[in-house]
C-alpha cells in the first residue's frame, strides 16, 4: 500500500469541521485519517510531506475562469490554465465560453473536455454560451450543450442586452436543469470605460464605468428570476448596491446565488493609480464602501462563493 502523510500543516476542512494544526494520512490516493498521527512514520513505510507553517486545504473549485482555448491560445490554453489552477490549489475549474469559436455548440464543448483529458491537470467543467456566438440574438442549443457536458450557460463578458431573450433563456434552460450565470453589466452605461467611475478615474482622466452599470443588470436578472421562478447565478459581484439587491431578493425567496472574487474585498480603485494596468479587471475595482459591503455579504451569506 502507498502511504503518504502530510505532517504538521494547518488543516482547514469544512466537511469535517477541521481548523487546526494536524496531520493527514493518505492511503492509495484516498484520505483515510485526519488527526495527529503519532505512529513511527518510518515503520509505516510512508512518504512524509512536511507542511509545517503551511495551510492544507481541500482542492478548491473555481466556478468562473477563462481557459481561452480554443481561439486565444496566445493568452492561455488548457494546459497553462489548468497548471496555474493547480499551482494555486484549485483542483476543479469551470471555464467560460468566450472562446473562438464560441462554446455555443456540442462540438466545442466536446473539444474542451477532450483537450482537458489530454493536456489538463485538474478537472475542467465547460460552461456553454446562452446565445449563438454570444451575439445576444438567438438561444444556443442549450439541451445539446448540457448533454455534451456543459455544467452551466453564460454569455460572460457580453451580457444579454435583450431582457426578453434573458427571460426566455431562463425559461428554456429550466427544462434541462442547467445553471444560468449572468455577467451583469449594462454595456450602454459602461460605454467602453476602463475603470470604476469616481475620484480616481477623474484624477487620471480615464473613462469610468459607473457602478450603476452592474447594479441595473443585477436588478433586471433578479426581477426575471423572480418572475420565471428559475434560479440564477450572478457572477463577480462588486458593488454595495448589488450585494444589497441580492440580499433583498433572497429575502423575497428568489432562487439566486452569487459569487465574488478576492480583489473585490481587498482592493479599491486606488490600485489603478499611476496607470497600473495590473489592477484593470472587469468589473472594475470599486471603492472602500463597496469593499466593506462585499465583506459583509460574505459574512452574512448573501454571497455564496468566491473564486
Amino acid at each position: 500500500m502507498l502511504r503518504v502523510v502530510i505532517k504538521g500543516g494547518h488543516v482547514i476542512d469544512p466537511k469535517t469541521n477541521t481548523d487546526s494544526i494536524t496531520d493527514i494520512l493518505i492511503e492509495d490516493g484516498i484520505i483515510t485519517e485526519i488527526g495527529n498521527i503519532d505512529e513511527d512514520l518510518e515503520a509505516l513505510n510512508c512518504d512524509v510531506i512536511d507542511a509545517g507553517g503551511k495551510l492544507v486545504l481541500p482542492g478548491l473549485v473555481d466556478a468562473h475562469c477563462h481557459l481561452r482555448d480554443p481561439g486565444f491560445e496566445y493568452k492561455e490554453d488548457i494546459e497553462s490554465g489548468t497548471k496555474s489552477a493547480a499551482a494555486g490549489g484549485f483542483t476543479s475549474v469551470a471555464c467560460m465560453p468566450n472562446t473562438n469559436p464560441v462554446a455555443d455548440n456540442e462540438s466545442v464543448i466536446k473539444y474542451i473536455i477532450n483537450k482537458a483529458k489530454q493536456d489538463g491537470v485538474v478537472n475542467v467543467y465547460p460552461i456553454g454560451a446562452i446565445s449563438k456566438g454570444q451575439k445576444g440574438e438567438e438561444l444556443s442549443e442549450i439541451g445539446e450543450l448540457k448533454f455534451a457536458g456543459a455544467v452551466a450557460i453564460s454569455d460572460d463578458g457580453k451580457p444579454l442586452k435583450s431582457s426578453s431573450l434573458m427571460k426566455r433563456a431562463l425559461e428554456y434552460s429550466s427544462m434541462f436543469d442547467i445553471a444560468v450565470i449572468s455577467h451583469c453589466e449594462d454595456l450602454d452605461i459602461a460605454d467602453e470605460g476602463v475603470m470604476n467611475e469616481g475620484y480616481w478615474s477623474t484624477i487620471m482622466g480615464l473613462k469610468g464605468i459607473p457602478s450603476a452599470a452592474e447594479e441595473i443588470m443585477v436588478a433586471r436578472e433578479l426581477i426575471l428570476a423572480e418572475y420565471t421562478k428559475v434560479p440564477i447565478h450572478i457572477a463577480h459581484v462588486s458593488t454595495e448596491l448589488a450585494v444589497d439587491l441580492i440580499r433583498h431578493a433572497k429575502k423575497r425567496g428568489v432562487k439566486v446565488t452569487c459569487e465574488t472574487c478576492p480583489h473585490y474585498f481587498v482592493l479599491t480603485d486606488e490600485a489603478c493609480s499611476g496607470f497600473n494596468t495590473h489592477a484593470k479587471v472587469n468589473p472594475p475595482l470599486r471603492t472602500q464602501k463597496d469593499v466593506e459591503a462585499v465583506i459583509e455579504g460574505l459574512k452574512d451569506g448573501t454571497i455564496d462563493n468566491c473564486h
Binding site: E197, G198, Y199, S201, T202, I203, G208
Partner: peptide, 8 residues
Amino acid sequence: IPRELDKV
C-alpha cells in the same frame, strides 16, 4: 463635469 471633481 467628471464625478467627485470637487474632491480635488
